[in-house]
Each structure stands twice: as C-alpha cells, then as structure tokens.
C-alpha cells in the first residue's frame, strides 16, 4: 500500500510539472494554432537560469528561502523574455504563412536554443543544488512523500489558481479568450492582438520556468537536452486533455503523470519514455480532440 501511495504522489508531482509546461503549449495553441515546439527549451532555459543564479547566491551565502525566491524570479524573468523574443523572431513574421511553415520554424528554434545552451554552457549533466530542504514536519511520511513532491504540488496548485483568476476575471484574460475564439473579430473590436499573443507567450514561458526550476531541484541535475523530452511529454499531456483547453491541459498532465508513475513502478522503468510516446500516438490516432477538447470541423 505504501508503494502505491508513493507512486501516486510521485505521479501527481510529475503531473504537476507536466501541467506547468503543458499550459504553455495549450495557451499558445489556443491563440495562434501553433505547436510551439521550442516551448520545452524555454523550460530548459528556466532550469539553467535558476541553476546559475542559485549557485551564485549560495556562494555569496544567502539564506535558503531568499535563494529559492530570487532564483525562481530570475528563471521567470529570463524565460519570459526568451518566450517573448522567440515569438517576435520566429513566429510573428509567419502569422499568415501555412501552418507547416510556422511549425518548421518552431522546430528550428528548438534546435537552435538547445545548441545555444550547449555551446554557451556545457553538454555535461550539471548537479543542481537541492533548493527545497527536507521539512521536519514531513519526517513521519518522508519515506512515502518527499518534501519536494509536496512543494511541487502546492506551488503548482497556487499557480493554477492564479492563472484561472487571471483568465476568468481580468481584462487581459478576457481579451485572451476573445482572441483565441476569433482573432480577426478580436482585432475588429479593438483588441491589440499582437500584444495578447506576446502576453500569452510570456505567461506560458513563466509557467514553464517555474516548472523547470522545481524539476531541476527535485531531480538534482540538468542538461541542455531536458527540454526536448519534457516538452514532448507535456505536449502529450496537452493533447490528451484536449489542446487549447486549459483545464484539459491540467487533467491530461495528471493522467499522464500517473500513467508513467504506475507503469514504471509496476511494469518496467526501461520503457518509461516509450509509454509516454505510445500514449501520444494512441490518443492522436483514436481521439485527436482529447478528453476535454472540442472537435474542429473544416469549413467547406
């Protein structure tokens, strides 16, 4: 039973991380209909930035809490800036081009960023400092649920609530929803669509950065390639839930996280990634609209 609960929690925290990344995919897809292939790289850049800042602050002898907050803040700021810049360079000029052109551009951007980090930093795995301490009050259940699992779950929940409020109740949220329903119409009623698209990229990238920092601290090492796999998995989660749907992305992520956790726990850990990819292939074949997505019919 303990093993089951352990797997359950590790699945949930995995799911939470996927959700943080998947939201970026789903929001961008909802607004400009593009699979932002470079989104996984944003997450990776977030992890690297927080790694660099956290290490410097540790050397300077900052207290643990300050390190977490400042490193997280830096990750968010830089990831958001990258997200914003990528959109301006690689996607904005292709707003009216065929879908595939933008997708190829996104793939190129992803390769570019991966190798940029590889060249600017290193190809080795870097040991990531454990930012989240083992809490004393978690001691009795520490063998089942780790402190960092708990922190991941709590942070993700808080972030989700903030995002929901932002989208449901604020002006910018309304404008985002309008733009995703009908871009031309939104433009006609005076919404600055370019700005909304930028904001979407910024929000999505910030979420990914938070995810990047949490994962890096949880797993304890990073490398330039982590964004690729995490990106595809998060994309799987977004599609599973129904791409374009925000609750769908969260639901899909949790389902994917649990599936992976139980499959690797009870079947075999060798095929961890195969499970995720197979799930992706199967959903797209049998239910491309996902759990909560709507079917889009082509107009004739």
């Amino acid at each position: 039973m303990d093993y089951f609960i352990e797997l359950l929690f590790s699945g949930l925290s995995r799911g939470a991380i996927y959700a943080l990344i998947a939201l970026g995919y789903t929001m961008v897809y909802g607004i400009i209909g593009l699979i932002n292939f470079a989104h996984g790289e944003i997450y990776m850049i977030g992890a690297f930035t927080s790694f660099i800042i956290a290490t410097i602050l540790t050397i300077l002898g900052f207290p643990a809490l300050a390190i977490i907050v400042l490193a997280g803040l830096a990750a968010v700021i830089w990831s958001a800036s990258y997200g914003y810049t990528i959109e301006k360079i690689a996607y904005k000029p292709l707003r009216h081009a065929p879908r595939l052109s933008a997708l190829i551009s996104a793939i190129g951007m992803s390769m570019f960023l991966q190798n940029y980090v590889l060249l600017a930093q290193t190809s080795d795995f870097l040991p990531f400092p454990q930012l989240i301490p083992d809490f004393a009050f978690m001691e009795p259940i520490a063998h089942i649920v780790g402190s960092s699992d708990m922190v991941i779950l709590v942070v993700t929940t808080v972030v989700m609530i903030c995002l929901t409020i932002l989208i449901k109740y604020t002006r910018i949220g309304k404008a985002m929803r309008a733009t995703s329903q009908d871009r031309t119409m939104a433009m006609l009623v005076g919404i600055n669509v370019n700005r909304i698209i930028s904001v979407t990229f910024i929000i999505g990238s910030s979420l990914a950065a938070i995810g990047g920092m949490l994962v890096a601290s949880h797993i304890g090492q990073i490398n330039f390639y982590i964004g690729f796999i995490a990106g595809i998995k998060a994309f799987t989660a977004a599609v599973l839930g129904g791409i374009g749907s925000i609750p769908g992305a969260v639901l899909g992520s949790v389902v994917l996280g649990l599936t992976e956790s139980f499959a690797t726990g009870y079947i075999s850990s060798d095929y961890e990634d195969v499970f995720a990819f197979s799930l992706l292939v199967l959903i797209l074949i049998f239910k491309p609209s996902g759990i909560l997505g709507k079917v889009d019919t082509q107009k004739v």
Binding site: A102, G108, M109, F112, L113, N115
Partner: peptide, 11 residues
C-alpha cells in the same frame, strides 16, 4: 546551431 537557424530563417 546553424541547422536550427537555417530552418527558422528559411521559413
């Protein structure tokens, strides 16, 4: 790095 840049620039 160049391949990535090529894909973006060409598109």
């Amino acid at each position: 790095l160049a391949f990535g840049a090529i894909l973006v620039c060409m598109m």
